[in-house]
């Protein structure tokens, strides 16, 4: 089987298994502060909230164990409070209260973002970690995500089902190690290809990638164990085939992909990306096509070394290309060793 060890090494290099201790500590502080200060803050705006009614839980890659190493640690923690949204119709205000509840500590910087409250940590002027806190209101047995920037005109309590989302992805990923690896590999590909992207919505959202991989994954294994190279190739190639590609009269390519959430609000995960610019989806498609081509070439060439060179084009410098053998194979002897 081709590139088994180099891919295994890459996997060990990119994966984050557990939260780091500084992250754990910051997260625990944050959770404590939410339960301690949010009820006070809400009270000062005449909203009753019991600390024991606040529900805080993991969302995203730390929940599904698909986290990869990135330059800035990024963690999503959901905060759910009971709230009558027919009375408190403006989620921006509630997010503001959450921000206030967390702003008494100087080591963190709290900002309100469109889908969450963002808590960032800086060292020597550089952000090294942020924890995103999507805020949900629980009302009449349903959850609603607080959307809207602090001073934005558009805002809403959007129906949401973070527990359902967690359950859905966990049930697909847990117990399926190759799928989990393939998700991490493809996230690594995305990370490499979008390293220099800074515009919002330019980058395909991770949840979209995760869903697409789950949709198109097929287990590939041989007598020698799981064949991750082929599995990655097949998934990426299948995802590529999901795009609707067309050309306008000038011959310019147009690409479109849609993947709707399987839970509330059942919206298209890629909508924001597509709404922001026509080119984003095309870039996504082109980069994906490039990866598929490299992976296909890697599968088709004979030598491990040459295959490795192609795969390195997909995953970047963290992938170690196996050395090429220069001398005739017969001069190598694995048995040769000193008898110390």
């Amino acid at each position: 089987m081709k590139l088994k060890k180099p891919l295994a090494d890459l996997y060990n290099e990119i994966r984050i298994q557990e939260e780091s201790e500084p992250l754990r500590e910051k997260r625990e502080f944050l959770q404590n502060d939410i339960t301690k200060y949010l009820p006070e803050e809400m009270q000062s705006h005449d909203i009753d909230l019991n600390a024991s009614d606040i529900r805080i839980f993991d969302q995203g890659s730390y929940k599904y164990h698909t986290t990869i190493k990135t330059s800035v640690i990024d963690r999503d923690v959901a905060v759910v409070i009971p709230l009558d949204i027919s009375e408190h119709t403006d989620p921006r205000k509630i997010k503001k209260y959450l921000k206030n509840a967390l702003s008494h500590v100087s080591t963190r910087t709290v900002n309100i973002k469109e889908p969450c409250v963002n808590v960032a940590y800086y060292e020597d002027g550089e952000e090294w970690m942020h924890i995103d806190l999507p805020l949900y209101a629980e009302y009449q047995g349903n959850l609603y995500l607080a959307r809207g920037r602090e001073f934005s005109d558009t805002y809403s309590w959007e129906p949401a089902d973070p527990d359902g989302l967690n359950d859905d992805l966990c049930s697909q990923i847990n117990g399926n190690d190759q799928l989990r690896r393939v998700i991490r590999f493809i996230k690594k590909w995305k990370y490499e290809k979008y390293k220099n992207s800074t515009l919002s919505h330019e980058i395909p959202p991770s949840i979209g990638i995760t869903y697409l991989v789950c949709d198109h994954f097929l287990k590939v294994s041989t007598d020698e164990g799981d064949d991750d190279l082929t599995a990655i190739y097949q998934v990426m190639s299948n995802i590529k085939n999901c795009f609707t590609v067309s050309y306008d009269i000038y011959g310019n390519i147009k690409a479109d992909i849609t993947r709707c959430l399987t839970v509330k609000p059942y919206s298209d995960i890629f909508k924001k990306m597509k709404d922001s610019s026509d080119t984003y989806c095309v870039t996504f498609y082109n980069r994906l096509s490039d990866a598929v081509k490299n992976l296909r070439d890697a599968i088709n060439v004979e030598s491990e070394h040459d295959a490795g060179v192609y795969v390195k084009n997909v995953f970047g410098d963290d992938f170690i290309v196996p050395p090429k053998n220069v001398s005739s194979a017969s001069t190598f002897s694995k048995k040769e060793h000193g008898f110390g």
């Binding site: 001398s327 001069t331 060793h337």
Partner: peptide, 23 residues
């Protein structure tokens, strides 16, 4: 030490060493 230099031709030796150095 997994290479038996005795079995290499002279040219192989040189190419092998240069390739190793560049690698």
């Amino acid at each position: 030490d997994n290479m038996i230099h005795f079995l290499q031709t002279y040219e192989e030796k040189v190419v092998d060493a240069v390739e190793r150095l560049i690698a």
